[in-house]
Design a binder for these strands. Structure first.
Length: 417
RNA sequence: GGAGGGAUGCCUGAGUGGUUAAAAGGGACGGGCUGUAAACCCGUUGCGCAAGCUACGGUGGUUCGAAUCCACCUCCCUCCA
């Protein structure tokens, strides 16, 4: 297409959110003309979203900022069925209670990225369980099932791959795409939603919804997918030693979250700034041009901005300040995780490896011992290689804490109580 | 329904009665070099202070000794009907 007419498309194209779209020109025209209502669906399979969901969350944010209306669809109903896309085996089925608990826990994250309310471009959050659970089987099959060709369903990637590998695919999962397609039509009916977005693995499911909308509602619906984000070294983004990078602060501290972004590879900085922050594009371009050690400034800005969105400006500043003290001055900051230790115990002396385990720097005593033996352990920034070393009250600094480190980046504090 | 094959540590994947806490690679972690980057080089990678304990799908058995042999069970794959 030529230069997009709508702010929305111009913005997301420039920022690298676009992978595929069912009809870019028509969508552009619609977005230029008025408010577009669009939705993205989220599974409730876990208690928190993680960095892998960030592209789509930011997509909703960009929509809202360019004057459109985002819908967050919680998959309370579809999670009961399980999306077979990209999976070798059926997921374990979650109980209703688990799904409800996950949904409640996820909900809070969105409030940091979107403005919810009743206004014309305020975001809304809905749960597809509201309409899916009450569907009557026979009427549903007659009204909607007849529009799905099994021949075509079998050719969809999500199904085809399973069958080609001779992996089992239950009839339950086979229905997932029908339900997702129905969601789209239902959201169109309820909210005038005309666009579904999602990750590139959702393309098939999204297109089904677009087709169904044309058939049963005579509506022109649109689908748009985001690219799968990998790091410049080719790794799937968001995987670290401690597992996924969660957005909920109780599952990953703001400090850790800030560190995750601070450790971005050079080659990814520009791309991530465009995708995951609100910074204007000319500012991103300037930061991206920095070379050598200077690019660290860009990484700090990236970490600040992304953490501020997720955990608030104050938490981001605290993390940044702690990082500055920890890495640039070698002192400590307030955002480091603190473990309480009984004062009498500390007075007697605690074996360093036990202290490290208790502070969460090692999973087992053995791991901590190996770390010490390997020269990766430090007490108050002094390397310790003696396995039998004890931490005592004498190690307490002026602020009443001892700083333990595993490697150069992982730090924790012990506080005597 | 019949005949074969398979299930190994975070993952892939060797192995086959004792020297196997289990080759190799990946990943991860630590060290070095740097810029809290990448690449590269080196080390570590079940639990336990230790004696030792647990581990090769599950349950029993054979044996001085089993991941390795036998029986049954579960799940998966291939071919035939």
């Amino acid at each position: 297409m030529s230069e997009p007419k709508s702010d929305f498309l111009r913005d997301i194209l420039a920022r690298g959110f676009m992978h595929q779209c069912t009809d870019l020109d028509a969508l552009d025209a619609a977005a230029a003309k008025g408010v577009v209502t669009a939705y993205i669906g989220y599974d409730c399979t876990g208690p928190s979203l993680h960095v892998g969901h960030m592209v789509s969350i930011m997509m909703l944010r960009r929509m809202q900022q360019t004057g459109h209306k985002p819908i967050v669809l919680m998959g309370g109903g579809t999670t009961k069925v399980g999306d077979p896309s990209g999976k070798d085996e059926a997921r374990q089925l979650l109980s209703d209670e688990q799904i409800a608990a996950n949904m409640a826990s996820i909900r809070a994250s969105f409030e940091n990225y979107l403005t919810f309310g009743d206004g014309p471009n305020d975001a809304v959050m809905v749960n597809n369980d509201d309409w899916l659970s009450t569907l009557a089987y026979i009427p549903f099959l007659r009204d909607f099932g007849r529009h799905f060709s099994v021949n075509r369903m079998l050719s969809m990637d999500s199904v085809k791959l399973r069958l080609e590998r001779e992996q089992p695919l239950s009839f339950l999962e086979f229905n997932y795409m029908i339900l997702q397609a129905y969601d789209f039509v239902e959201l169109h009916r309820r909210y005038g939603c005309i666009l579904q977005m999602g990750g590139s693995d959702q393309w098939g499911n999204i297109v089904n919804g677009v087709d169904l909308g044309r058939r049963v509602a005579d509506a022109q619906l649109f689908g748009l997918t985001t690219p799968l984000i990998t790091t410049a070294s080719g790794a799937k983004m968001g995987k670290t030693a401690s597992g996924a990078v969660w957005l909920n602060p109780d599952m990953r501290s703001p400090w850790d979250y800030w560190q995750f972004w601070r450790n971005t590879e050079d080659a990814d900085v520009g791309r991530f700034l465009r995708l995951f922050t609100d910074l204007p594009l000319d500012e991103v371009a300037r930061l991206e041009r920095l070379e050598g050690a200077e690019i660290n400034e860009a990484k700090k800005i990236l970490a600040n901005e992304v953490t501020a969105l997720c955990h608030g400006r104050a938490a981001a500043q605290e993390a940044a300040e702690t990082a500055r003290k920890t890495f640039e001055e070698g002192t400590t900051g307030d955002a480091l995780p603190v473990t309480q230790i009984a004062a009498p115990r500390l007075a007697e002396g605690i074996l360093l490896y036990e202290a490290m385990r208790e502070a969460g720097l090692a999973a087992s005593n053995g791991e901590a011992r190996r770390l010490i033996k390997g020269g990766g352990a430090r007490v108050n920034d002094t390397a310790i290689s003696d396995e039998a070393h004890k931490v005592t009250s004498a190690d307490l600094g002026g602020d009443g804490t001892v700083k333990l480190s595993a490697g150069k980046k992982r730090h924790a504090l012990l506080r005597a109580v």
